[in-house]
Design a protein around this nucleic acid. Structure first.
Lengths: 103, 103
DNA sequence: ATTATATATCAAGATATATTGATATATAAG
DNA sequence: CTTATATATCAATATATCTTGATATATAAT
């Protein structure tokens, strides 16, 4: 039940649904990319990413100064269904805006 | 997005997940049955049922004094997936205890 | 009509979650 | 070694949600 509710509460937030869809659409992105694209402060993005990661939707890989987030693979059927459902939503996503200074 | 989040927030609560599974398992039940089975006060049950109904999981049919709730049919693929996922959870459900005095 | 049962809804307080700004840590560049 | 960039986390506040008890409405039985 705890895992199920962690999964559900992770997507029970409009910002996180958008971030999740953004990563699903753009592939691997780092925190500053999302920060710049969404025009939200870093701590807010970082916190949402942690929740999505802990809920099993994302994986993170650190390279240099950067933390690259992407959809976790393999993804179980239920989370796949959720991603698919989100892809059907009529969401106005920001376009990817690289926010990192020296990549 | 509003409909998606209403669906998700409806199942983002342990009590509602249990009630939903209870109805899925037992079929049509009235509010007093759930009240008695779950040993929760009526207003609490009633409120949760309304949320599950508004989120498209349940239908209600009034007969006499009673309001009978059951899984809405037909149910779209996404909500079916959610019900299926909930059915896999290891939940300790109460057994159906008919709470109505004169049915 | 009066009383009992069933259900819904409201207002108040309790609890949980989100946002912000500040701080801490780590890597890389100069 | 010092500075800039990237990220994570914490504490305070703001906002949303849940629970409870009270009240309102409707049906049925006496």
């Amino acid at each position: 039940m705890e895992i199920f509710l962690a999964t559900i509460s992770a997507i029970n937030d409009e910002t996180r649904v958008k971030i999740l869809r953004f990563i699903d659409k753009n592939g691997e992105v780092c925190v500053c990319d999302i920060e710049k694209s969404f025009e939200m402060i870093q701590s807010r993005i970082s916190r949402h990413l942690k929740i999505l990661k802990d809920a099993g939707f994302l994986r993170v890989e650190r390279r240099g100064r950067w933390a690259y987030y992407s959809i976790r693979s393999p993804l179980d059927k239920f989370r796949q269904n959720i991603l698919e459902e989100i892809s059907y939503l009529d969401i106005k996503l920001p376009i990817l805006d690289k926010g990192c200074k020296n990549e």
